[in-house]
Amino acid sequence: MMDKPTNNRAWFFVLPVLVLVLFSSIVPVMTVVNYSLQDSMGVNNFFWNGDSWFRDLLNPDTEIGARFADALLRTIAFSFTALAVEVPLGIAIALCLPRRGWSVGISLVIMALPMLIPWNVVGTMWQIFARQDIGLFGAALTGIGLPYNVTQGSVSAWVTIVVIDVWHWTPLVILLSYAGLRAIPDAFYQAARIDGASRWAVFVNIELPKLQKVLVIAVLLRFMQTFMIYTEPVVVTGGGPGSATTFLSIDLVKIAIGQVDVGSAAAMSLVYYIIILTACWIFFTVMTQIDRRGDR
């Protein structure tokens, strides 16, 4: 709005960050762009290939295009399923947590525990959990007569991956929502009681509107993470059965490393990257608009 005192020496302090960013993102991304526009005949023998990798990729009639479209659809479906479960569940649990007293700390730590376990450990844990013979989860489902088999049934595999993600990451939504709820002044609840509002009305008219900002952040974080899910399906299902749980990231690795098809993989990861960027931009726009509306 107004002129701030300027001092060109300030650029010196930003320089290290610029160098870091150059090496950590710009150089790798440019390498990928480079690969995506070339074809290789063996090691270090590249030639110009134009946009043909991209055209193949985005054309569902080609083999790679069909494969990409399937994986993309699967990934989107997974993100939506995970979000549809985690956000309402997270809010619901956050609402049930105590707001004051000695139990606050304990409940929060218990809630946060799953988040502290590394991805591959989670995968390994659930690999055992899901076994029909000795796994708690698998045996229980089989015990009540459900046709559960994580290595054979695609529904079983899907359900397992979703359950893992819910178990692992709902705590993030819980903690964010809890912080949002705690920030609502007591006067609002008191006023609602005096106004004779029902519990549901309090939720709809006070809690949910006040949580709006926090929830956009939660959804953004969860969307990005679920959209890039890799470790859990690789460890638990290996992307199977068939390609039932082969999400974009897994397919990408299969193409790049399994088939050494560097050009396709590079084009694929760029498209993947652009999708995520676009999604983030949309969320960011929504978020700033909520801010602006609140300020008026």
Partner: peptide
């Protein structure tokens, strides 16, 4: 408890229901 006392209260800071119009806010109680 408060809700059984049949009182109304105005607080130090404005307490309004964000999702409602002014008329709906007034009509809420």
């Amino acid at each position: 408890p408060t809700e059984q006392r049949n009182i109304a209260q105005v607080f130090q800071f404005p307490v309004i229901y964000d999702t409602m119009t002014v008329a709906e806010n007034l009509a809420f109680p």
